[in-house]
């Protein structure tokens, strides 16, 4: 039987790291290590000699890991970007999910695929959560700025709230902009005028 695949996950956030580890544990029996500390990252990875490295595509330290693909010393273990070698569908799915993976040369796709499938599914979920959080935040901020703009209009023009909102909405529609953007512009302009 082939020895257990060793996997390194580069992820500074403990909660996200845990989610990925759990997903991989469900997919099979692997030797999994998480690296949270990005200082000396190349050295840390090289020491562990993993078969597979998983990293968030948004993490700038991906370029550091790229350096490992050039290692030629006898102790270093070159890793190759899997997206070049395995099937294009899997690669595209990984990129879309926001996952980057490095796979040691010579590993068969059959051994790697279950890991990647599980990781891709988990990254997709985390990405969805992140997007939802960002949208919620943005909606909250939009509402705050719209409320301020409404208040300004109500005072300046002495009109009721519904009328102030209607005015914002009409202006936004006429200019092909979002209501929040028009509100933002009004608040900024009012700030400048004092």
């Amino acid at each position: 039987m082939a020895p257990k695949l060793s996997i390194v996950i580069v992820e500074p956030e403990p909660e996200r790291a845990r989610l990925i580890v759990d997903a991989l544990r469900d997919a099979g029996d692997f030797d999994i290590r998480v690296i949270a500390e990005r200082s000396g990252l190349a050295r840390q990875i090289a020491q562990r000699q993993p078969d597979l490295v998983l990293v968030d595509v948004a993490d700038p330290s991906r370029d550091t890991i790229e350096e490992l693909t050039l290692a030629t010393g006898p102790l270093d273990r070159p890793v190759a970007l899997f997206v070049d070698r395995s099937d294009a569908g899997l690669s595209a799915a990984a990129i879309e999910a926001g996952l980057s993976a490095y796979v040691v040369d010579g590993l068969t796709p059959a051994r790697v695929k279950p890991v990647l499938d599980a990781a891709i599914a988990r990254f997709r979920m985390m990405q969805r959560m992140r997007t939802e959080l960002a949208e919620t935040k943005r909606a909250l901020e939009d509402r705050k700025v719209i409320d301020r703009a409404k208040g300004m209009l109500m005072r300046a023009r002495n009109i009721p709230e519904e009328e102030a909102y209607a005015l914002l909405r009409k202006t936004a529609m006429d200019q092909g902009r979002r209501v929040a953007d028009v509100a933002e512009a009004l608040v900024t302009a009012a700030g400048l005028l004092g």
């Binding site: 595509v57 991906r62 370029d63 690669s91 980057s100």
Partner: peptide, 15 residues
């Protein structure tokens, strides 16, 4: 893009 490697991959994969 957050890194050169990811931008190169985005180019290679047609994003």
């Amino acid at each position: 893009a957050p890194s050169w490697a990811s931008l190169r991959d985005a180019l290679v994969h047609g994003q």
